[in-house]
Design a protein around this nucleic acid. Structure first.
Length: 800
RNA sequence: GCCUGUGUGAUGGAAUUGGUAGACGUGCUGGACUCAAAAUCCAGUGAUAGCAAUAUCGUGUGGGUCCGAGUCCCACCACAGGCACCA
């Protein structure tokens, strides 16, 4: 057993002293940019899940460096956020203090693992040198009309008197105090992300994300093709506009539904005879939280608008209008035409309110006895559409609508604008000032950053404003335009803001003139590999792509998309197969594992644990197995003879292993890379002796995964450390075995395996196959129909 | 409900993309070394039958294509993740 503590300390110091980790901004070499999602420095410290992804990218960046690339592999800290804020309120300290302590702990844990992040580029999103530029970029959005203020409902805990994120209010209950969350209307800053829906879909073509990531994003954006149709409102000059994906069913409309918040109600208050009932319903709908509205209540509710009647433009039929919360103001036009015969929701509503149902599509054979028929079918009761299928009927209807100016084709997206305000203090202040005369005015660029005050007492307000609103010295200022007294915006940016451009800052982290220098942007270009959790496949990744695309559109960055490849590591579960959590008592602390088995063994195990992209259960026995493997590598040094060639016995398998490990590391197949090295080790142990070159090559191949012990062993035979030498190359001609075990099957069933020389002719293989005793048993008195020969693989004899 | 994945020994997982299923690791069994244990080393380990050679079965289930299917096609079942009254 080697002493891992001594060896690991020694080499970690060597790498730091020699700045092996450093990326160079003025290099002639080809660049490669690896990125991990920067961690939130929580008090809980590093998780074995962090170790998995950090090791994976550390391994490939070590390999790429040996291959002569200028590798950028940076880290920073996503330091704003509510846990640090809670902690600060409770303990009356400034959150930056808690963050600093946690960062120190994280950093030391990471360094003990031998991960070579470029520490010269480290920063935190809460550094004012960084958030200055976050604010600067926000002002670019503001300047280009991409930021606006709007009333939005937020989740509100009436007991804690605080706005909650959807995550903190899941189940309709406040995560902290358990009381019922209600909706509260607040003015919020919004970014016009919905304008970018199409660009965010198209941009995916320029990336190499996995299919599952792409589809998650496409679903989230939710593009749908359809039409807008105008319905006259009887006895008025107004029209009611609806969006539908099935304009072909217009002849089947028997009622309409508008969202409870639809402006039409306010406008025709006087015409609506049951206005009291309507208003009660509006209030009822508004009191529901997002959770109740989407998850609990499936039974349709609603109220008919007495006195309001719409006219179907296709046949001038009078149509009743209802309000119901199954129609959302935020999607489409906030109004629908209901076709109960062919839409499940409309059907339920019609049943409940006894509304007639008109079928306009022929039923297929397997029609349901109860419910709407939503599949395709030939049109009936539909005038000029009769006999057409769905596709043709939609086309024809849209032509008709456009010709008669009662509608048009239309694309809609589910993607909404980004609510960019938080009523919190531990975030980037939004750099805007409100002046009674001039309205919202940007803080001048040369006055950035708008710094967070350094007080340590934060008093929550009663009305849901940010605690910053109580700090007069922060709030009161003068208007940059007219000089009159004015007030600062007290909302801060969401946690997603700082993480929406951090990969750009890594390219040029100390620039105090620009958010990133042009040369750095052009040199580093796109992130080549971006590793992160599947849980960020929609939100963070969409925000980041949106932000970057905006910067591109206004000419600040050279690429449309920020990330070329996205890879996601699977979660590491506890030994019992459940998610690690304190309450389940199955949390594994990486520090303990490093202490007991060493960083190399931990790294090696986490790479070997299974398919990198899939989740895997922790097994300490498996970790011990990897330590055993490294101990065997250590013991192998006793067999080394001072020879500078490969052993003849090992030459082929070494060439095969170089090829395999190179391919596997490039393709994130770490588990099979480790396995290939184990196979090679087994082979080497069988030998009487091995050569120096055999051993050094083996150590170099293992080095990206287990860097410390391999450097130590290498140093006994080689003056050049592995981190300064180059990645081994293989000779394709020497990767082919000389003898092959050939499978012989009869009617597809394996009957024998025979040893043959590589590239034996087909004729010869046939002969050898038929000569085998066991094969004879199955072929002798049978009729041979045909013989299939796949050279170097298999001979299959078909008999009758 | 829709979308995306995944189902392989006791167990984590391999399988060069249609060509010898179970590599490699863990666990287990037996043996060597030891007074004994640990560590280490050697052998075995999908199921059934057989002393054995070998045979039959076997990659969630049922069908299909093919000389040949874990891999391709159809139907279904289970689990995981994402979206969800989105018109």
């Amino acid at each position: 057993m080697y002493n891992h503590k001594r060896i690991e300390q020694k080499w970690q110091k060597y790498w730091l002293d020699n700045e092996i980790y450093k990326a160079d901004n003025n290099s002639d070499k080809e660049k490669f940019y690896y990125l991990i999602e920067f961690p939130y420095p929580s008090g809980a410290g590093l998780h074995v899940g962090h170790v998995r992804s950090y090791t994976a990218l550390d391994a490939v960046s070590r390999k790429k460096r040996m291959m002569g690339y200028n590798v950028l592999f940076p880290i920073g800290w996503d330091a704003f956020g509510s846990p640090a804020e809670q902690y600060a309120i409770k303990n009356h300290i400034h959150p930056s203090k808690a963050v600093t302590e946690n960062v120190k702990e994280f950093k030391s844990q990471i360094q003990k693992l031998g991960i070579l992040f470029d520490w010269s580029r480290e920063f935190s999103t809460a550094d004012k040198e960084y958030y200055k530029w976050t604010q600067w970029q926000f002002l670019k959005f503001f300047e280009h009309g991409m930021a606006y203020k709007a009333k939005k409902n937020i989740n509100w805990c009436p007991v804690c008197k605080v706005g909650l994120s959807n995550e903190d209010s899941s189940g309709g209950v406040c995560e902290r105090c358990g009381s019922k969350v209600v909706q509260k209307e607040k003015e919020q800053w919004m970014l016009k992300m919905s304008d970018y829906a199409e660009q965010l879909i198209e941009g995916l073509d320029k990336t190499e994300f996995q299919e599952r990531t792409k589809t998650a994003q496409i679903n989230w954006i939710g593009k749908s093709l359809g039409a807008e149709i105008l319905f006259d409102i009887k006895d008025t000059t107004d029209k009611l506009k609806v969006f539908t994906t099935r304009p072909d069913t217009l002849f089947g409309v028997t009622f309409m539904v508008i969202a409870p918040e639809h402006p039409l109600i306010k406008k025709y208050e006087d015409k609506i005879s049951n206005i009291k009932e309507v208003k009660d319903y509006q209030e009822f709908a508004n009191s529901k939280t997002e959770f109740e509205r989407t998850n609990l209540v499936k039974e349709k509710t609603g109220v008919k608008l007495q006195g309001i009647t719409a006219i179907n433009p296709i046949n001038n039929t009078e149509i009743p209008v209802y309000i119901s919360d199954y129609v959302m103001m935020s999607y489409g036009t906030g109004a629908i035409m209901a076709v109960p015969a062919h839409d499940e929701r409309d059907y339920e509503f019609a049943k409940k309110f006894n509304i007639p149902i008109i079928e306009v599509l022929q039923q297929d054979e397997n029609k349901k006895t109860d419910g709407a028929m939503t599949s395709d079918g030939l049109h009936i009761n539909s005038g000029f559409l009769n006999g057409l299928n769905k596709e043709d009927a939609i086309k024809k209807m849209i032509e008709y609508l456009e010709a008669n100016k009662i509608g048009n084709s239309k694309v809609n997206y589910k993607l909404q604008d980004w609510v960019f305000s938080r009523q919190r203090f531990w975030g980037e202040p939004i750099p805007l000032i409100h002046c009674d005369k001039c309205g919202w005015v940007a803080v001048p660029y040369d006055k950035l950053p708008v710094e967070l005050p350094t007080v340590t007492e934060y008093v929550p307000t009663d009305d849901g404003e940010s605690p910053l609103a109580k700090i007069d010295s922060f709030v009161n200022t003068t208007c940059p335009k007219c000089g009159a007294p004015a007030k600062r915006e007290t909302d801060t940016m969401p946690n997603w803001a700082g993480s929406s451009w951090y990969w750009l800052r890594y390219m040029d982290p100390h620039n105090d003139k620009e958010f990133v220098g042009k040369d750095a942007l052009n040199y580093w270009g796109m992130v080549d590999y971006y590793n992160g959790g599947m849980e960020h496949a929609t939100r963070h990744l969409l925000y980041a792509r949106f932000w970057h695309r905006f910067l591109y559109n206004i000419g600040l960055v050279p690429t449309e998309e920020p990330f070329k490849k996205r890879v996601s590591h699977g979660m590491i579960l506890g030994e019992n197969g459940e998610k690690m959590s304190k309450s389940k008592g199955n949390v594994v602390n990486p520090d303990d594992m490093v202490e007991l088995y060493g960083a190399d063994a931990l790294r090696c195990y986490e790479m070997f644990i299974g398919d990198y992209e899939k989740e895997a259960s922790w097994s300490e026995a498996g970790l011990r197995g990897c330590r055993k493997f490294l101990d065997r590598v250590d013991r192998l040094q006793e067999k080394v003879k001072d020879v500078n060639n490969y052993s003849p016995n090992l030459e082929i398998i070494i060439n095969q292993t170089i090829k395999k490990v190179s391919y596997d590391l490039d393709n994130m197949k770490y588990n099979t890379a480790v396995s290939a090295l184990m196979i090679l080790l087994n082979k080497m142990e069988e030998q009487e002796s091995i050569t120096k070159k055999d051993y050094i090559t083996f150590l170099t191949l293992l080095n990206p995964i287990a860097p410390h012990i391999t450097e130590e062993l290498n140093s006994k035979f080689n003056d050049i450390p592995i981190c300064k030498s180059s990645w081994p190359e293989y000779d394709e001609n020497k990767t082919k075995d000389k003898t092959i075990s050939l499978a012989v099957s009869v009617n597809g069933k394996l009957r024998a395996t025979i040893k043959v020389e590589a590239d034996t002719s087909e004729e010869e293989l046939k002969k050898l196959a038929f000569a085998n005793e066991n094969v004879k048993k199955f072929t002798l008195d049978k009729e041979i129909i045909k013989v299939i020969v796949v050279p170097n693989k298999i001979v299959n004899i078909v008999v009758k």
